[in-house]
Design a protein around this nucleic acid. Structure first.
Length: 753
DNA sequence: TCGAGAATTGTTTTT
DNA sequence: CAATTCTCGA
C-alpha cells in the first residue's frame, strides 16, 4: 500500500473514499492533482477497477496529458486506458459516435470563435439586421450564455420584453439554423448536444454510464450548468462522482461557469462526503499570507484557511513604476539580474490582458532573453493554418460552406466577393450546398464564362485532391493540399519575412500531422485530427522543460506553479478591470479578486507585484491609481525598495483621470466629472492612494424614477428608485433580464432610452 | 476584382 | 496604437 504513504491524512481520505459523491475542496497548491492521480491508481490497483471504467475530466489538454502520464507511472497495469480529457474533447468523442441520432453526420465540423464570428456576419446579412445596433460580439455572447443555461431560441423569444429582445432571439434561431446547415457545432453546442443525446436516447446514456463507473472532475469551480448536467447524467447510475475544486479560484464566470455548482454541491448530492485540503505545499508563507490577505475581502466563499509549514521565505515585493515601459524593463532586468537563483524557465510574468504582453515581448527581444508567449493568437487559429484546415475539410467533403468560401480565393484566383455572393444566393435558392453550386457555376445568371472558368479551376483542384485522398496519410494529404492548391507557391513568391514564417507554420502543421497515427486513406482518423486541432488551447503548447520565461495572462496560468512570479499592471481600471468597476456589481470585483488570488498563488518562492502610473491604452495615455488589491495587503507584508509605498508621495500628472482614457472625457456623451485641469483627488499622496477616493459627484441625473434605462451589461430596465447617498446617487433598477439591482450612478453609466 | 490608403473603432479573460 | 473595415480608383 505504498501508494498512500506519501499522502497526508486528508489526501489519503480523499483517495480512499472511492464510492459515492465526494466533494474535495482543494485550496491552491494543496496537491489536488496528486490526489486525483493517486485516486485513479488506487481504484485500479487496490480496488480492482478496470481502468476502462474511469473517466477523469480536466481543464486543459495539457493537464490531461500530464495526469495520464502520472497515473501510468503510479500503477503497473495500463493506467493509459483511463479516459482523461477535457469536457470538450470528451463530448467530441462521444458525439462522433452518435452524431447521426441528432441529425449531424459523424463528420461534423467544430466552429471556433473566428468561425462563429464569420457565421454570425452571414446571419446578420440574411436577416438584414443592422450590425451597428447588434454587434456580432455581443450577439454571440448573449447566445452563448443562453446556451449555457439551456435556453432555446424559442424560450428567448417568449421571455423577450421588447423588440430588441425578440430580434436577438431571431438571430439566435437563424444562427442555429445555419450551424445545422453547415453540419457544424460551436463549443457550447458540443456540450449541449451531448446532454441532449443523453436525455433523448436513454439507451445511449446507459451505455456510457456503464462505461464510466467512476468519474472525477478537476477544476470543478469552473464548470457551467451544462457541464454539470452532463456529469450529473453520467454519474446518476453508479453515483461515483468525485469533484475537485476551489471556490476561491473560480475565474470563468464570463464563460458561464457557475460557482453555485460547487457551493451547492451538497444540495444536489445530499450524501456527499466533503473533504477539505488546506495544507499548501507550494508557496512560502509570505506568499501564502499575501494571497489570504487579498482573498479574505470576498464574501460568499466556503470557509477555509490555507496554511503551510514552510518558512517565511523572501518578502513579497511591490514596485511602482512611472510608465508601463519602465515596468516591463524593470521586471525583465530584474529577472536577468537574479539568474543565479532563478533560471529563465523558473520565471513567469503574469498580467490581466493579452495586450500587455507586447511590452514584455519587446524587452525580452531587446535584452535577448528567451521567452515563451502563451495566449494571444493560438497556433491553430493563424490564418495560414485555418486556410489549410479549410482545404482539408472541403476535401473530406464536410458540408461546411464557410470553409469553402474561405479558400475559394486563397490563393488568389480572381474570384471576388460579388461572385461568392451570387453563388451563395444561388445555392440558397436551390437548397444545395455552396460547393455544389460551384460545380454548376456556368448555369448561374450573372456569372460570366471567364469567372466560371476560374471557378472550374478551383473545383478541379478539390476534385483532384479528393481522388488521391483515399491512398494518402494525413501528413501526405496536407502536403498534397499545399502543393496542388498553389498555397505554398504563392507564399514563396511573396518573399517577405511574413510569408516565410507562414511557411514555417505550415511545416509545423505537417509535423503535427505526421505524429498522428493513421493508415493511408483513413477518413475517420482525419476527422479526429481536425477535431483535435480545433480543441487545442494555447496553454497546451507550454513545455515545462524549456528554459524560457513564460509570459501569459493570469487566466492562462491556472493550474501552473512557478518559483518566481511577477504580477504586472496592478492598477485600478486594468486590474480590477474597468468593466468590473463600472458594472456596479460587487461580484464582478470579487471575480477579479479571485483572479488575483490565482495569480499570487502560482508563486513558489518569490513574488513581485508591480504597477505603472502611466500606460498607453488605445493610443491614449492613461493614468491610474494603484490597484485596490495592493491596498488590501497589509503594509508590513510588502517590501517596497526600502520605503513603504504609502509613505511616498508620487507626483500626479496634471490631467489625471480616473478609469477611462482622455477621449471619453472629451466625447461629452454624459457629464464628466473630470474637466481637464481639475485634478481628481487634488494630487496629495493620500488621495492618490485612494484613501479618500473622490470620483466627484454627479449633481444631476439624466433620468428619473420610472424612466427606461439601458445598462452596458444588464440590458434594459426601469428605474425603481433613486436615493441620494452620501457620495453618490444610488439607483435601483428593475432589469428585464436580470431582475432588480442597486447601482451607483457614477459607476453604472446608465443611459436613458 | 482588387489593392492602397483612409477612416474608424476598440478592451478583458477562453474551451 | 493596433487591427479591422471602408472607399475609391484602376
Amino acid at each position: 500500500m505504498q501508494l498512500l504513504e506519501t499522502l497526508n491524512d486528508k489526501q489519503r481520505e480523499a483517495v480512499e473514499t472511492t464510492e459515492g459523491a465526494v466533494l474535495i475542496l482543494a485550496g491552491a497548491g494543496s496537491g489536488k492533482t496528486r490526489v486525483l492521480t493517486h485516486r485513479a491508481a488506487y481504484l485500479i490497483s487496490e480496488k480492482g477497477v478496470d481502468p476502462w471504467n474511469i473517466l477523469a475530466i480536466t481543464f486543459t489538454n495539457k493537464a490531461a496529458g500530464e495526469m495520464k502520464e502520472r497515473i501510468d507511472r503510479l500503477c503497473e497495469e495500463d493506467g493509459g486506458k483511463v479516459w482523461v480529457a477535457t469536457f470538450h474533447a470528451t463530448c467530441g468523442r462521444i458525439l462522433r459516435r452518435h452524431a447521426e441520432l441528432l441529425g449531424y453526420t459523424s463528420n461534423y465540423t467544430i466552429y471556433d470563435t473566428d468561425d462563429t464570428k464569420a457565421l454570425m456576419k452571414r446571419v446578420l446579412k440574411t436577416l438584414d439586421v443592422d450590425n451597428k445596433m447588434y454587434p456580432e460580439r455581443m450577439l454571440l455572447s448573449v447566445i452563448s450564455s443562453a446556451k449555457n443555461s439551456f435556453e432555446t431560441p424559442d424560450d428567448m423569444y417568449k421571455q423577450a420584453g421588447d423588440y430588441r429582445g425578440r430580434k436577438i432571439a431571431e438571430v439566435y434561431e437563424e444562427y442555429q439554423k445555419q450551424l445545422r446547415a453547415n453540419d457544424a457545432m460551436d463549443f457550447d453546442d458540443m456540450l449541449l448536444n451531448t446532454v441532449e443525446l443523453f436525455t433523448r436516447f436513454p439507451e445511449v446514456l446507459l451505455s456510457w454510464q456503464e462505461r464510466f463507473r467512476y468519474i472525477m472532475v478537476d477544476e470543478y469551480q469552473d464548470t457551467n450548468t451544462v457541464q454539470f448536467e452532463f456529469v450529473r447524467l453520467l454519474a446518476s447510475k453508479y453515483g461515483n462522482l468525485c469533484v475537485v475544486g476551489d471556490d476561491d479560484q473560480s475565474i470563468y464566470k464570463f464563460r458561464g461557469a457557475d460557482i453555485r455548482n460547487i457551493l451547492e454541491f451538497e444540495q444536489y448530492f445530499p450524501k456527499a462526503r466533503v473533504i477539505k485540503l488546506e495544507q499548501n505545499y507550494r508557496s512560502s508563507s509570505n506568499i501564502l499570507n499575501t494571497a489570504n490577505a487579498v482573498i479574505k475581502h470576498n464574501r460568499g466563499r466556503k470557509a477555509k484557511t490555507l496554511w503551510t509549514d514552510k518558512g517565511g521565505g523572501d518578502p513579497v515585493e511591490y514596485r511602482e513604476y512611472s510608465t508601463a515601459y519602465d515596468e516591463a524593463e524593470g521586471i525583465v532586468m530584474d529577472i536577468k539580474a537574479n539568474l543565479r537563483r532563478f533560471a529563465y524557465g523558473d520565471c513567469a510574468v503574469l498580467y490581466r490582458t493579452n495586450a500587455q504582453s507586447r511590452l514584455f515581448e519587446e524587452k525580452c527581444v531587446l535584452y535577448s532573453i528567451p521567452y515563451k508567449l502563451v495566449g494571444g493568437v493560438n497556433f491553430y487559429q493563424r490564418r495560414e493554418i485555418k486556410d489549410i484546415i479549410a482545404y482539408l475539410k472541403t476535401v473530406v467533403g464536410a458540408k461546411d460552406d464557410l470553409s469553402v468560401q474561405r479558400i475559394i480565393n486563397v490563393p488568389r484566383r480572381g474570384i471576388g466577393q460579388t461572385t461568392v455572393t451570387r453563388l451563395a444566393d444561388y445555392a440558397a435558392s436551390e437548397g444545395i450546398d455552396f460547393y455544389e453550386a460551384l460545380t454548376c457555376a456556368d448555369r448561374i445568371s450573372g456569372i460570366n464564362s471567364g469567372t466560371a472558368a476560374k471557378i472550374a479551376g478551383f473545383v478541379s483542384v478539390i476534385e483532384g485532391l479528393r481522388e488521391v485522398r483515399g491512398s494518402l496519410s494525413i501528413k501526405e494529404l496536407v502536403e498534397a493540399v499545399c502543393e496542388k492548391s498553389g498555397y505554398i507557391k504563392e507564399l514563396r513568391e511573396e518573399k517577405t519575412i511574413e510569408a516565410e514564417s507562414r511557411i514555417e507554420n505550415i511545416e509545423e502543421l505537417i509535423n503535427k500531422a505526421a505524429e498522428f497515427p493513421d493508415e493511408p486513406g483513413d477518413m475517420t482518423a482525419l476527422s479526429q485530427f481536425l477535431e483535435e486541432v480545433a480543441l487545442v488551447a494555447d496553454v497546451d503548447t507550454l513545455d515545462d522543460d524549456e528554459n524560457r520565461v513564460v509570459l501569459m495572462t493570469m487566466h492562462g496560468a491556472k493550474g501552473l506553479e512557478v518559483p518566481r512570479v511577477d504580477l504586472a499592471g496592478m492598477e485600478e481600471g486594468l486590474f480590477p478591470g474597468y468593466m468590473s468597476i463600472s458594472s456596479g456589481d460587487e461580484s464582478d470585483i470579487e471575480e477579479e479578486r479571485r483572479l488575483c488570488y490565482v495569480g499570487i498563488t502560482r508563486a513558489k518562492e518569490k513574488l513581485t507585484l508591480s504597477a505603472a502610473r502611466e500606460r498607453m491604452v488605445n493610443g491614449e495615455t492613461r493614468f491610474s491609481q494603484v490597484s485596490r488589491f495592493i491596498k488590501e495587503i497589509p503594509e508590513e507584508m510588502l517590501e517596497t525598495e526600502g520605503k513603504s509605498p504609502r509613505a511616498k508621495s508620487p507626483v500626479l500628472p496634471e490631467y489625471a483621470k480616473y478609469g477611462m482614457g482622455a477621449r471619453a472625457s472629451g466625447s461629452a456623451a454624459e457629464p464628466r466629472n473630470a474637466r481637464p485641469g481639475s485634478v481628481i483627488g487634488s494630487g496629495s499622496a493620500a488621495a492618490y492612494l485612494g484613501k479618500t477616493l473622490e470620483t466627484g459627484r454627479l449633481t444631476k441625473l439624466s433620468y428619473g424614477v420610472g424612466d427606461r434605462v439601458r445598462h452596458i451589461k444588464f440590458g434594459e430596465g426601469t428605474v425603481a428608485a433613486i436615493e441620494d447617498g452620501k457620495r453618490d446617487f444610488e439607483v435601483t433598477v428593475d432589469f428585464d433580464r436580470v431582475g432588480s439591482k442597486k447601482l451607483f450612478a457614477s459607476f453604472a453609466k446608465l443611459e436613458k432610452i
